[in-house]
Nucleic acid binder design. Structure first.
Lengths: 220, 220
DNA sequence: GCCTACAAAGCAAGCGCTTGGTTTGCAAAT
DNA sequence: ATTTGCAAACCAAGCGCTTGCTTTGTAGGC
């Protein structure tokens, strides 16, 4: 990850390799397993129809088994949502950290974080993150508390990099910047189109310019 | 609305008066009526529990009637959600236009739009807007199409002011700016606290500075 | 011979909504 | 001033269906 001598620093970490390692370490479910297939189907259905509207019968039909058989893999329907959200946060956090590790300078790291979050929201795992955000309140209270621990870890990476990028700003200003950035980035999933003219790298730089005045300073 | 001679231009329109006029014109339901009470209860429950999780029995209990009696006022449960969303968009759009009409200069108008949207998302009608955004997909396809007409009208106000504020930018850049602003503003509802030190006027100016470089140019 | 992974069938609860009948408010007729 | 008429608002009961989940049984790999 630090061998810049052999391979030049990439703007984005190798997502497939990262995922493969996490599967090997047992941190996320192997997509090839029955449980993995079920989780993938759940992500797609929960995103398209919402958690409440998706029935265990829909879920079973999506992977070609009977509804009762679901409960061999999960004890309850909420447990499926919990698993989806947990694995999503795990993967997203790992990618965020990997993105930051590609660079030395705080400003470069910040750009990488923005790029990473854009990728998470608009890339291949977009459905999972969408479920995580939109169906969060469907989780039982106990699940929410448990998962908040992971979420705080994700936020800590952002705050650390932002502090070092804008050391002159007080903590509460850093907080506001993080939130405004998060909003601008999250919202892209409602309008950004990968097939359009604007690519994610360019969009990342536009947003980056909002947080780091310096050279260009603003939009355009 | 234009008599600046007698009353100085306000930074924010009188929401109560605007609402009263709309009720008088029959554009929104009178909150004092049975239908109005039901809609207000629906907003609160849909926001807190979500549309799917809220049953007509919950709704009836909230206003102290039997579940069957709901269907004297609305033909179906989706029709209730439709009414909530429609009235929310109507009111929000009217407020946005009123905010723009308080000023002459495009830059001032833009600040007023930002302030208005912040108010809509964090103010008294925050619950209704939250329902509109989060439960949108629960609406039947036909409802969505019908309501999209109103939504486009809302967007048109924004695009018009943005174009006149930054006439040097091409249309697609204006589009991106609008979306990034919308994201930053919408997301405030997840973190902004009215009781905190940062007031909405100040936050509006911070966001305004992102879109209009000129004087101050950036954050802080 | 046991364990994993499913099928098949079904249960209890809860859902949106319907039905038939009762109460209430109010204006016109007496 | 009282009665009558009537529609809006609501109740009590429950229908038909779907839901998450349970139970029982079994085919196949180790």
């Amino acid at each position: 990850m630090e061998d810049h001598v052999l391979t030049p620093p990439a703007t984005t970490p190798d997502e497939d390799q990262l995922l493969a390692e996490m599967i090997r370490r047992g941190e996320v479910t192997d997509p090839a397993s029955a449980r993995g297939k079920l989780l993938r189907a759940a992500v797609e259905l929960f995103r398209r129809e919402g958690y409440e509207r998706t029935t265990v019968r829909d879920l079973a039909a999506a992977i070609g088994i009977q509804s009762g058989s679901i409960f061999h893999h999960f004890r309850s329907k909420p447990e499926i949502l919990h698993a989806v959200v947990e694995e999503c946060i795990r993967i997203t956090t790992a990618r965020l950290k990997a993105a930051a590790a590609l660079h030395e300078q705080p400003a470069d790291q910040l750009r990488a974080l923005i790029r990473s979050e854009l990728e998470a929201i608009n890339g291949r795992s977009a459905d999972a993150l969408s479920v995580t955000v939109f169906e969060w309140r469907c989780l039982p209270e106990a699940s929410q508390q448990e998962l908040l621990v992971w979420r705080r870890e994700y936020d800590a990476v952002w705050m650390d990099v932002l502090r070092r990028t804008r050391p002159e700003l007080p903590a509460d200003e850093i907080f506001v910047i993080r939130r405004l950035l998060m909003g601008a980035i999250s919202w892209t999933h409602t309008w950004y189109n990968r097939e359009g003219r604007l690519d994610l790298d360019e969009l990342a730089i536009r947003i980056w310019n909002l947080a780091v005045p310096g050279e260009t300073g603003t939009f355009s």
